[in-house]
């Protein structure tokens, strides 16, 4: 079946069976390789993108459910030459170790900052809870999010 996906403000016609996860279409058909395949079960968050402004697991979102909605991937935030404020904060804080989870972390954090520009520490932690980093750089990731939000980089007591 053919669908039109609206990704980072551009329409992309794609041909796929309706149950195909959005993640496969992004990576295999559209060469948008930012979102990663981690578990395929909605448990790790490496595939996180935004759908209509909310963080979503691209591995569990059938393309039939994604068509006609606003999809945003990490490629829509910034480039290597001109990173977005949140991407810049991740770089300054050296929040990536292996980096596999980072695109998902950034997209989930960006969804929070778009809705709540100055979140509390508890809001940040509750919001980021679904996404896992196996290298264990969570503390740096939290610092990067605080930095991007203009909050003190060291946590207030959570």
């Amino acid at each position: 079946m053919s669908f039109v996906l609206t990704i980072n403000g551009r329409d992309h016609p794609v041909d796929a069976s309706p149950e195909t996860p959005l993640l496969y279409v992004l990576r295999d058909d559209l060469r948008l390789n930012g979102a990663k395949f981690g578990c395929g079960l909605g448990q790790c968050g490496a595939c996180t993108v935004q759908v209509d402004g909310k963080a979503a697991y691209a591995c569990l979102l059938p393309v039939a459910a994604a068509a006609g909605r606003r999809i945003r991937t990490v490629e829509g935030l910034g480039t290597a030459e001109a990173p977005s404020p949140l991407q810049k904060a991740f770089m300054v804080e050296q929040a990536a170790q292996c980096g596999y989870c980072i695109a998902g972390m950034i997209m989930r954090a960006q969804a929070l900052l778009d809705a709540t520009p100055r979140p509390t520490e508890a809001e940040i932690r509750a919001h980021m809870q679904p996404n896992l980093c196996r290298c264990g750089t969570h503390m740096r990731i939290l610092r990067a999010i605080r930095r991007a939000a203009g909050l003190p980089v060291e946590a207030a007591s959570a």
Binding site: S17, P18, E19, T20, P21, G40, L41, G42, C59, L60, L61, P62, V63, A64, A65
Partner: peptide, 14 residues
């Protein structure tokens, strides 16, 4: 059929 396709993409992996 619509529910079946959504189930296959969103639920069947588990």
């Amino acid at each position: 059929p619509a529910g079946a396709a959504l189930y296959a993409g969103a639920c069947a992996a588990c």
